[in-house]
């Protein structure tokens, strides 16, 4: 999606006075408009849009595919092989959320800036909004749903995040947890500073960083 709306048409402005000269000048000559309206031809990235068959939620609608043909892939998600039709431009976040029904992975920005969509690909924390599904064939994917044991036992990081009251609104939480799990897999004894760095790719607008890092440190030794 484009940043600034450009759909339909865009105006052009003409600045007769040569603006930018400070407030006092502005009143002397109001800016004038040229009403010439030009058509816009903005290219829109479709990677962040919901497309394709939508795994059942639009079962009765005609299949309308844009930008390519779906291909059947086998994905290894949370230890299970899942067969799924995937478009060439489809991101892993979209596949996970809309085709596999795993909505624990969140979309905060859909462009690699916030970390809400963090999952593990072969154990490495990865922004799933910024990875094409077709590129993860044969690799092992873990989402937040894959951490809980079969018996309903929480992963030690999940339990520690409860004990330390990590989440506030909770929207960034799955991403924070995935980053923490990856850290403790590779470095079972991190310092607080190392934990801060490991989770620094996960923005939390609620600002709950202190509690999250407390959670990571509480999980040390429990993993």
């Amino acid at each position: 999606m484009s940043d600034i709306p450009t759909k339909g048409a865009s105006p052009q402005y003409f600045d007769a006075a040569g603006e930018g000269s400070g407030l006092a000048n502005k009143r002397a000559s109001r800016r004038q408009f040229i009403k010439g309206v030009i058509a816009s031809g903005t290219a829109i990235s479709t990677a962040g849009l919901v497309f394709g068959g939508l795994g059942g939620c639009s079962a009765d609608s005609p299949p309308v595919n844009v930008g390519g043909v779906e291909r059947l892939l086998s994905l290894n998600v949370n230890g299970q092989i899942r067969r799924v039709d995937v478009l060439p431009q489809e991101t892993l976040a979209m596949t996970i959320r809309y085709k596999l029904g795993l909505t624990g992975t969140k979309l905060g920005c859909d462009r690699g800036e916030c970390g809400a969509c963090t999952i593990l690909v072969d154990g490495v924390p990865t922004y799933s909004c910024s990875m094409l599904t077709q590129s993860v064939r044969g690799r092992s994917i873990t989402t937040i749903e894959g951490l809980e044991g079969q018996d309903g036992r929480l992963h030690p990081v999940q339990q520690a995040f409860i004990d330390e009251l990590g989440p506030q609104c909770g929207f960034c939480t799955p991403g924070q947890i995935m980053s923490a799990v990856a850290l403790l897999e590779t470095n079972p004894n991190p310092t607080r500073e190392q934990a801060r760095v490991a989770l620094s790719g996960n923005l939390c607008r609620c600002g709950a960083y202190d509690n999250y890092i407390n959670g990571v440190m509480a999980a040390v030794g429990r993993v």
Binding site: L54, G56, C57, S61, R97, G101, L102, G170
Partner: peptide, 23 residues
């Protein structure tokens, strides 16, 4: 509600699906 937040089961508006849902 904390447990659902750490398991990913907490449902936010975009997490709901209904039959026939369009965009």
């Amino acid at each position: 509600d904390v447990r659902a937040k750490v398991t990913g089961k907490a449902k936010y508006a975009e997490d709901f699906r209904v039959d026939g849902m369009v965009f």
